[in-house]
Design a protein around this nucleic acid. Structure first.
Length: 109
DNA sequence: TTCCTGACGCTCG
DNA sequence: GCGAGCGCCAGGA
């Protein structure tokens, strides 16, 4: 990807927008971490929960990403289950589209 | 404040 | 290898 500077700027603007979207602090933190996942890579819900500050809140992570108001901006499709499964996807196309996006990014074979 | 739900995780049969 | 059950944390009604 390009410059990390614009990415940081984007993240800052995102945080401001998320706060105005009626999301909670925890959910914002989760979505912010998800947005930092590099293209072509994936993270498990447990990892995201850990990054968000609550290692055992993987359930709440699912609730948070499901509320993701910035679908393409925040790559929630890069969050998969710990067993390697795609998991669910409430966005357009469901889990099928999720897998397609991951294949497009080279995250999966 | 209490109960129910959820894009999960792990164990057990 | 697979399905069912229980535990986990956060949020909404």
């Amino acid at each position: 990807m390009g410059s990390g500077r614009s990415a940081a700027l984007e993240e800052k603007r995102m945080a401001a927008r998320l706060e105005g979207s009626g999301l909670t602090r925890f959910q914002i933190r989760v979505l912010l971490e998800v947005m930092r996942i590099p293209r072509g890579e994936t993270r498990t819900y447990s990892e995201v929960a850990r990054m968000a500050g609550s290692p055992r809140a993987y359930r709440a992570v699912g609730t948070a990403v499901r509320r993701n108001p910035f679908a393409p901006r925040i790559p929630c499709h890069r969050v998969v289950r710990s067993d390697g499964s795609i998991g669910r996807y409430s966005g357009r196309g469901g889990a099928k589209a999720k897998m397609l996006m991951l294949k497009s990014e080279g995250a999966v074979g």
